[in-house]
Every structure is written in C-alpha cells, then in structure tokens.
C-alpha cells in the first residue's frame, strides 16, 4: 500500500501534471468564493451592534490568521515527511510555503492592529495572542533566512524541516493563548465546537472568505512549486 502510494502519487512528475490540471479549476473556484465573500461581507452583511461597520475588517483579518497558522501546519507536516521518508515533493512544498505564510501572518498582524486602534484603543499590546503570532512571524522569517544561507540542497531541506517542526509547538500555544491566559484579544468565535457566536448573515461571507483564502494559498503554492521544479531541472 505504502509502496504503491509512493510509486504513483509522490513523484515530482505526478505533482506537476496534476497541479497543471487543477490550477484553472482552483482559480475559477477562487474567483467565485472571493467575489461572493467580498460583496456579501462588505455590502450585505448587517453592521455589528457594537462595532458598526468597523467589524468588516474581520473578513480579511480572520482568514489571514487561519492561513498564517494553516500554512505553518502544512509546513510542519511536509517537514515530517521530509525528515522521515525523504520525499522530494514535501521538501519543495515546505520551502515554497514559507514566504506565503510569512506574508499572511504580516497581514493578520497589520489588519488586527488597524482594527485594534479604534476598538480597543491601542495599536499594539503585549498580550499572549498578539505576542505568539509575532513569534510565528519570526519563525517564518527565521526559516526563510536559514534556507537562503545553506547552499547544499540536502542540508538546507533537513535544517529547514527541523526548524519547521520545532516551531510547530507554537501553533497550539497561539490557539489556546486566549483561553489559558488573560488577554485583551477576544476568545474564539467560529472555531469552537458549540454553536458559533456570529450571526449567520455575518458568518457565511466569512466562511466563503476563509475558503477563498485557502484556495488562493494553494494556487500560489502550486505555481511556486512548479517554478521551483522547472528551475531544478
């Protein structure tokens, strides 16, 4: 079973062909979800009872946060596959994900900051959630820096994989930071198992935006990976 999987689905060539086939569909799906999320979120969703229209920044902020953590999770899984099974495509996926993840983490911090000034009254505060996300950004930047100074491909991939795995400890810390400690940042709204604390008319555009952002990540990731593969040949 494992051998069969490795023979048929993990070679670089299989990835290249499949992703070329998938890309147009992903772009199509992205355009639909993104335009629905944007229009419904910015124009049709009702204003919040406390924040008024200011809450609409969450349609960018929340998906960015999901991606910041989701991309790191993808990197950690790829790192594991790289270290244990020496799968070539996983190493490529890991190093191509890092800059995208870094940018989305940056976007999450910036949009949060812009929202924080009028709502909380401050651009920045050293509470557990904000600090742990800042550490996530530094992990991304550290990973990118490390990748760029090691010349040998093998050493670069393994060193990067190690850093990606070690940094994965930060993910549960980010998620539970608002529960374990007193923070200024609010608790989770949609990722808790009970009913979400967002009204449905506000929630659906948000879910569409989250899906659209994830698809966007895969589009960019596939293009970057294809470029990297072509350059290596």
């Amino acid at each position: 079973m494992w051998h069969w999987l490795k023979q048929n689905f993990l070679p670089v060539k299989f990835f290249y062909q499949t992703s070329t086939m998938l890309l147009p569909w992903l772009i199509f799906l992205f355009v639909i979800l993104f335009s629905y999320g944007m229009i419904a979120g910015l124009f049709f969703a009702p204003a919040d009872y406390q924040q008024g229209d200011g809450f609409r920044i969450m349609y960018v902020h929340v998906p960015s946060c999901f991606l910041a953590m989701g991309i790191y999770f993808v990197m950690a899984v790829s790192a594991f596959l790289t270290l244990v099974f020496r799968i070539k495509i996983a190493a490529i996926c890991m190093s191509c994900s890092a800059p995208i993840g870094a940018w989305f983490t940056f976007l999450a911090l910036v949009t949060g900051s812009i929202w924080g000034k009028p709502m909380w009254g401050t651009w920045w505060i050293w509470d557990a959630r904000l600090t742990s996300v800042l550490i996530l950004l530094f992990l991304y930047l550290g990973f990118i820096a490390l990748q760029s100074v090691i010349y040998s491909t093998r050493a670069r991939e393994r060193a990067g994989a190690l850093i990606a795995l070690v940094g994965a400890i930060n993910l549960p810390i980010i998620h539970y930071s608002v529960i374990w400690w007193n923070t200024l940042h609010q608790g989770p709204s949609i990722s808790k198992f009970a009913t979400p604390s967002i009204a449905p008319a506000m929630l659906y555009p948000l879910l569409a935006m989250i899906a659209a952002f994830f698809i966007f990540y895969f589009i960019i990731l596939f293009i970057r990976m294809q470029n990297k593969i072509l350059r290596a040949i």
């Binding site: 009872y49 609010q186 009204a199």
Partner: peptide, 13 residues
C-alpha cells in the same frame, strides 16, 4: 482599553 467579546450580532437584531 476596551475588550471586545467574541459575539457578533447585527445591530437591528
């Protein structure tokens, strides 16, 4: 500083 809770409710509702 004001702390916002995790509830989002339409103003009319």
């Amino acid at each position: 500083l004001a702390k916002h809770d995790e509830r989002y409710i339409p103003a009319t509702l």
